[in-house]
Design a protein around this nucleic acid. Sequence first.
DNA 1: CCAGTTACATACCGATCGGTATAATATACT
DNA 2: AGTATATTATACCGATCGGTATGTAACTGG
Lengths: 193, 193
Amino acid sequence: MVRPREFNEEQALHAAMELFWEKGYEATSLSDLTAKMGIQRPSLYAAFGDKKELFEAALRKYNQFHASYVRTRLQSVPSVKEALRSFFMGIVAEAYEEVPNRGCFCLNVMVELAPHDAKFEVLTREHQMYLAAIFQETIERGIRSGELGKHVNAKALAQTLVVSMIGLTVLMKSRPDRTFADNAAATVVALLE
Amino acid sequence: MVRPREFNEEQALHAAMELFWEKGYEATSLSDLTAKMGIQRPSLYAAFGDKKELFEAALRKYNQFHASYVRTRLQSVPSVKEALRSFFMGIVAEAYEEVPNRGCFCLNVMVELAPHDAKFEVLTREHQMYLAAIFQETIERGIRSGELGKHVNAKALAQTLVVSMIGLTVLMKSRPDRTFADNAAATVVALLE
DNA sequence: CCAGTTACATACCGATCGGTATAATATACT
DNA sequence: AGTATATTATACCGATCGGTATGTAACTGG
């Protein structure tokens, strides 16, 4: 005995995610959101709560998407070294292609909101830990296959790769010289040798 | 034949820098600024121009301060390895002490504004290049003193240190476990071996 | 001590912010 | 078909946004 929604919540949330990802929390207005989501303001509040709650839902959606994206990229290549090389080179290449360079939504949130909002501090930290676990899985796969030495500390190396990934992604926001970016990516990969 | 300023421009700009550093561009209002700077709104516009111009002046001031801070820290320790170790450990230690964790103002700007504003893209890129040059100087000093091998590629290593510094600084915004942060910092230093 | 110039404080501007009250509309169950 | 219920669209809310006009106070050169 109800009137059904005329919009797809999933699509609307996706649109909100893209907007927040590109512009950040403060710079995105409710008018921006309703326009891009294709819904009216009261519908947004009924479906997602206030701006912060919508933002949190968007970040959770991004983190899920991003984690599975990273896992897929690393698992789809048989060689662990080659998978990681392709992954880090991809960060550089995609940053040059994209305008504006959105980078990683989760990192953007770490910078804009995590220092002032405990909820986002936790949410972003958990995602980084999760990414570290994905890297660790991959490294352990390389150890098992003999591609990496048995003496490699998988956990420590994974954490280092997370730091390098963050550094590379954020560095790309300033669009450094291609040589700088390529060299930085190459040096990260060289950590595996 | 004029009335002199009642406020110190240097101090006022410093106050603005601290506010922008802590809260970012969008989240800092003119009311916040005039309150902390201790001046009235028309005085702010007369002395510094509009909000964006004031922000740019604040960033330039920060970059100067930050570059000389980094240079001093790296030069004040005779051992290059020890200087770099202390520097990266310091990033971790200071992040835990500071609440909220402001991180690096220039990195905050890279994330919030550089992708949408060419002026800040250039300004932040130049600072990263400058930091890379400082690291390179330090590494070359280590090579000359024999502390580092002659085969070391100073420029490439310096660029890698910049990426690691960025990654570590941004990671700290999510306040990761102490073990994660310490290990990440230690692995960066291990690059020198 | 007056004239000219600049900075000060207050008060205000239109625009936009996030959020909501209201009322018309569309559906499902009885 | 009628009624209860949820969604829609419009219009509106007070607050705050960045920015400025206005008039008064303070100083200096003549």
